[in-house]
Amino acid sequence: MTNQNIEESMGALLQDFDVKRIKSGDILDGEVIDVNDKEVTVNINYAFDGVIEKAELTNIDKDPREVVQQGDKLKVYVLSPNDGEGYVQLSRVKALEITEREDIKKAFNNDEVIKVYVKEEVKGGLVAYYGNIRVFIPASLASRERVILSDLIGKELEVKIIELDFKSRKIVASRRVLEDAIFENNKKELWKSVKSGEKRAGVVKKLIKAGAIVDIGGITGLIHLTDLSWGRVNRAEDVVKEGDKVEVFVGEVDAKNERVSLILKDINEDPWTTNEDKLKIGAVIEGKVVKFLNFGAFVELYPGVEGLVHINEITDENIAKPSDVLTLGQKVKVKVLDVDKTNKRVSLTIKDAEEKSKEYLKYNDIDDGVSLGDLFKDFFK
């Protein structure tokens, strides 16, 4: 039977059944009555069933049986009222393009979230589909975190349309804008909850001259060099490195300006408290020279506890600066002259802590293990 005869027969049948006429471009409601690996048969409440070929079912390369099932209801677009074999040729792709265009336009105008399926990675980003409409996600907008784009292929993502131009087929979406909004909301909640004095887990993000920047779960704060350890710290990298997981105490919190200071050293182990019994006026302690000033030298007595030796208390000799007789790192005996526990200050003397014998002072820096007999043997000849 020729196509002309088939069309004439169909026309006669339609007249006999007095059913509605359909034409190319119509969008109809249909119900799946059969599906196989190549096509889908659809009841469209017409004298003849419709057929959707695999390529017209979806832009995603999937077996039709993974896309629809018997009984599913869907919108279909009439490609041809007669495919030459007694079926109406249909397209789900084209029907969706019309309805999905309206969905995307509505989402864009109302700043709404839609879901897209990521199909492939291309130069500069990802190609995704909202149903059958191509959507581009730039690499910089795929996530607020560093992400391997290929890992997102085959996944469904929530995005917002940030640029829409159907004429030039330019539809751009962002996943990052959603993540940024979540991040900012979480950060606001975190600022409400963070309290001075509490302990939090954090990660060292960056080392700077002033100390270390630490993330405590959406909030970043500075650990100043002086708060990294009770002992003297010259460089942050001497205590921590980037990526380290740390437990920190929260210092001052300025939620309004989103600033917080952090403390790594244990605030419950203040060396001024733990060494309080040893800091007595008149006590002689061995310390280490850690810093020079024009008017004296600082000596570390215990980690976190330092005292000042005024230049006049270093030696009876007339010196221009502390480094004339002392070196950084040198161990010295010091005597406590005064203790100000409130302001955490200790005044020290070196000269009064040493033996008064000039000969003893002369040999004081000789290596340990030398006896007094060896030192003064020439005096007993």
Rank of each mutant, 00 (worst) to 15 (best):
I263L: 10
G243H: 10
V214E: 10
A212G: 09
T220C: 01
D238C: 00
D266P: 07
E269A: 14
T274G: 03
H224E: 12
E242Q: 15
I223Y: 04
R232P: 00
W230G: 06
S196L: 05
G221E: 13
K321H: 14
G221C: 11
V250S: 06
I219C: 04
L279P: 06
L264Y: 13
L228F: 02
G282S: 10
D227L: 03
P271N: 10
E252L: 02
I319K: 08
A212M: 03
I213W: 14
G304S: 03
P303G: 07
L207Q: 04
K278N: 14
V289S: 05
K321S: 14
L222D: 07
D270F: 04
G197W: 00
V239Q: 02
K209V: 06
K278Y: 11
N318I: 14
K241M: 04
D227I: 00
K241R: 14
E276W: 05
R200M: 14
G296Y: 06
W272R: 04
I285A: 06
T315S: 10
P271E: 11
V214Y: 08
I216S: 08
G218I: 09
N318V: 11
K280P: 06
A297H: 05
E317S: 14
K205P: 04
V290C: 03
A210V: 04
K256H: 05
